[in-house]
Design a binder for these strands. Structure first.
Lengths: 137, 137
DNA sequence: GTAGATGCAAACTTTTTGCAGACTG
DNA sequence: CAGTCTGCAAAAAGTTTGCATCTAC
């Protein structure tokens, strides 16, 4: 899977690379890439392939009824618990210490083994909780 | 919103009530309720209404490309962080102490205010991590 | 009686697929 | 050259919507 490096695949990855910490809707992606001459079917086929390869995460937001994809940058990033702001949509990584403590608590209290890479914590980020200092939206 | 208590609405809620801790796909729901004489459009309209009313959570799973809904039972449940098993799909609540500690850590370390009701932690549950004692799948 | 819901069918939107030709390694 | 990937167009799925009719309160 994902054996050849084609022009279209590069364009798609490049596009995600420029929006590393954002959730992009399929419509948005199809639209943006059609300008570069990438067909709709190529986009969809690559989204599926890249999701299966673990390079993209598929998700939906509360509120609208769209499908979003987010780039899971590097190896390192894949095992991080992500924080996603419900105001501005930006994501970041949880601190290592909080991550470790959470894993331990879940194991002890709930007998649950967390899968960091698949977990996204929602809430309000630093910027957005301070309306006066320039939070988007 | 959600003003009248109709037969269809009751059937839908009843169906969710019987699957409190599961994620049900739209197809599955439409299919199951059509047997009881609930039309597809009534299902969709009610899913939207109940999601907006905060009684259902809409989500997608890694792997397939379907839309799922889960029942958010009572008031209490709505502010709980949920644990979802990626093997069997069952959900439960994180322990209060782990929840509090996580909120504190996120605030201190990451300046992030968690929204419990929207957060789902993925991983392997107790049953599924013990293959010998009857974990489903 | 009236606002709100439902069913049905049609309209849309989003995704998937078949196939012939183009491209990568 | 062989195995993949792409574009296009058609098909399939999944959702939404208009409208006349029906129901809940």
């Amino acid at each position: 899977m994902n054996e050849y490096s084609t022009k279209q695949r590069k364009i798609l990855l490049d596009y995600f690379g420029k929006h590393t910490d954002e959730c992009l809707s399929t419509t948005e992606i199809v639209c943006a890439l059609s300008v570069c001459g990438v067909s709709e079917s190529a986009v969809y086929r690559n989204l599926v392939a890249l999701e299966n390869a673990g390079k993209l995460r598929r998700m939906s937001k509360a509120g609208d009824r769209k499908t979003y994809y987010q780039y899971i940058d590097d190896e390192d990033c894949r095992d991080q618990i992500h924080l996603s702001c419900i105001r501005c949509g930006r994501t970041s990584h949880i601190s290592p210490s909080a991550s470790k403590r959470l894993a331990k608590d879940l194991k002890n209290d709930d007998d649950f083994i967390i899968s960091n890479g698949e977990t996204v914590i929602y809430g309000i980020c630093k910027k957005c909780s301070r309306p006066l200092s320039g939070g988007k939206a």
